[in-house]
Computed example of a mutant assay.
Amino acid sequence: MKIAIGSDHGGFLLKELIKEYLENKGFAVKDYGTDSEASCDYPEFAQSVGEAVAAGEYDKGIVICGTGIGISIAANKIPGIRCALVGDSFSAKATRQHNDTNVLALGARVIGSGLALEIVDIWLGTEFEGGRHAGRVEKIGNIEKKYCK
């Protein structure tokens, strides 16, 4: 599986930890930045990761900022992206099973590194259930098509 990852300065250290963790597990990871804790703007990294996932260059994406809120909002502006801000294990599983999310957002200043790695493992290891959820995801796509012309 190929993973695109990106963060702003607030998520830089957690991004580096997750990137190394995933590479050690055999995932192909592309880092879209940032490359330091110097102040920068999260929308740039959300856009880079989101575009790479939406284009099919990467299977999934992970975006990280201080709270995860801003970067998730930005990622969700890209047609084809279903990004969920996750801060617990249950939601990590549910967002894949029910929403078929393709980008995970994390808040580095909100959760610890141990929980973040657990969330990443659960999120990457959970399949979309389809069934009744497929129709709901399709409806989300229809809303997107209506407003993203």
Score class of each variant (00 low, 15 high):
36 S>F: 09
40 C>D: 13
22 L>P: 00
15 K>T: 07
36 S>T: 14
40 C>N: 05
36 S>Q: 00
21 Y>T: 15
32 Y>T: 12
38 A>Y: 12
28 A>V: 08
31 D>N: 09
23 E>R: 15
27 F>H: 11
31 D>V: 03
41 D>S: 08
41 D>H: 13
41 D>W: 12
36 S>A: 03
12 F>G: 04
28 A>I: 12
18 I>A: 11
44 E>M: 15
32 Y>D: 05
38 A>L: 14
38 A>E: 15
16 E>R: 10
27 F>T: 14
19 K>W: 12
32 Y>K: 02
37 E>M: 00
44 E>F: 11
33 G>S: 13
23 E>F: 03
43 P>E: 06
32 Y>G: 11
43 P>S: 14
14 L>H: 09
30 K>G: 12
16 E>Y: 03
31 D>G: 06
24 N>S: 10
27 F>L: 14
42 Y>K: 04
40 C>F: 08
36 S>N: 08
40 C>I: 13
21 Y>C: 01
14 L>K: 15
17 L>N: 04
32 Y>S: 02
44 E>A: 03
20 E>N: 13
41 D>F: 05
16 E>M: 11
19 K>T: 04
46 A>Q: 03
47 Q>I: 05
36 S>Y: 09
32 Y>A: 05
20 E>T: 15
45 F>E: 00
41 D>I: 03
35 D>W: 10
38 A>P: 00
32 Y>W: 13
40 C>E: 02
22 L>K: 01
37 E>A: 08
27 F>E: 08
42 Y>A: 07
31 D>C: 06
40 C>R: 00
22 L>I: 07
39 S>I: 04
29 V>Y: 04
45 F>S: 01
14 L>P: 04
30 K>I: 11
26 G>Q: 10
21 Y>Q: 14
26 G>N: 06
16 E>D: 12
16 E>I: 09
41 D>M: 06
47 Q>T: 06
16 E>G: 10
30 K>T: 14
30 K>P: 10
18 I>Q: 03
28 A>Y: 11
18 I>H: 06
37 E>D: 05
25 K>E: 05
26 G>F: 12
39 S>H: 15
19 K>V: 03
36 S>V: 15
13 L>S: 10
21 Y>H: 09
35 D>Q: 11
21 Y>F: 13
29 V>K: 00
27 F>A: 01
31 D>I: 08
36 S>D: 09
21 Y>L: 03
35 D>H: 13
26 G>E: 09
40 C>Y: 08
28 A>W: 00
18 I>C: 01
30 K>W: 00
28 A>E: 13
38 A>G: 05
13 L>N: 12
44 E>N: 14
41 D>C: 02
31 D>T: 13
24 N>P: 00
40 C>G: 02
44 E>S: 14
44 E>K: 08
23 E>N: 06
18 I>E: 01
35 D>R: 07
23 E>Q: 14
36 S>E: 12
32 Y>N: 06
46 A>F: 04
27 F>Y: 15
47 Q>H: 10
38 A>C: 01
41 D>P: 07
17 L>I: 09
38 A>D: 14
40 C>K: 02
13 L>Y: 01
44 E>H: 11
45 F>R: 00
35 D>N: 15
29 V>P: 01
43 P>Y: 01
21 Y>V: 10
